[in-house]
Simulated assay, not measured.
Amino acid sequence: MPLEIERKFLLGDGPLPPAVATEPIEQGYLAVTGTGTEVRVRRIAGRCVLGVKHGHGELSRVEVELPLTESEFDDLWPATAGARLVKTRHSVPVRDTLAFVDVYEQELSGLRTVEVEFPSEEAARAFAPPRWFGPEITGDKRYRNRRLATEGLGPLAP
């Protein structure tokens, strides 16, 4: 069972460290349940995927992604109206891994987050974030992409 193990942090307005890759991402949600399951479609730099995430874990959740053709993505995209976000992802080296800096656009303009994925929960807990990371928001539901896509930043954002 493929697990996504990650920690997430806010970023301030300072300059971003140099990225090794930058990719535009369009993301829309087809379904979100109260049991922690979400079904989404994504176009990442022209590559299209259908993703399913499940679980309420603070650090880890089940994640499965399946490739979509551009045509399949285009057929599903209208069903995500009202549950979308657009961001640019910058892959930044941090020690022996990559951090993914997401710079949100459109209605979420100004929001910048950074995620680091890990091979185990032990590695995630042992990770000491660099100084350029802001406050940790790993367990903060306000910053989950599915919530941002459906509700925006709302009044609870800093």
Results as ranks from 00 to 15, higher is better:
P2D: 03
P2Q: 07
P2A: 07
L3D: 10
R7A: 11
K8D: 06
L10Y: 07
L11R: 12
L11V: 12
P15H: 06
L16F: 05
P17C: 03
V20R: 13
A21R: 15
E23F: 09
P24A: 09
P24I: 01
P24N: 00
G28N: 01
G28W: 04
Y29T: 11
G34D: 15
T37S: 08
T37W: 00
T37D: 04
E38L: 04
E38V: 07
E38K: 08
V39R: 06
V39Q: 05
V39K: 01
V39F: 09
R42W: 02
G46I: 09
G46Q: 08
C48S: 11
V49N: 08
V52N: 00
K53Y: 04
H56E: 14
H56L: 11
G57E: 05
L59K: 13
V62A: 09
V62F: 04
V64A: 05
E65L: 04
L66D: 02
E70I: 09
F73V: 08
D74W: 03
D75S: 12
P78G: 08
T80M: 11
A81V: 07
G82H: 07
G82V: 06
R84N: 10
L85R: 00
V86N: 00
K87F: 09
T88W: 01
T88S: 05
S91C: 05
V92C: 04
V94Q: 02
V94L: 01
T97E: 01
L98E: 14
A99M: 05
F100N: 10
V101N: 07
D102Y: 09
V103E: 15
Y104V: 04
S109D: 13
S109I: 05
G110Q: 08
R112Q: 05
E115Q: 04
P119W: 01
S120E: 05
E122M: 00
A123F: 02
A123S: 11
A124K: 07
R125V: 14
R125F: 02
P130Y: 10
F133N: 06
G134S: 13
G134A: 14
I137A: 15
D140K: 12
R147K: 12
L148N: 08
E151F: 05
P155G: 06
P155V: 06
A157T: 08
P158A: 13
P158N: 06
P158E: 13
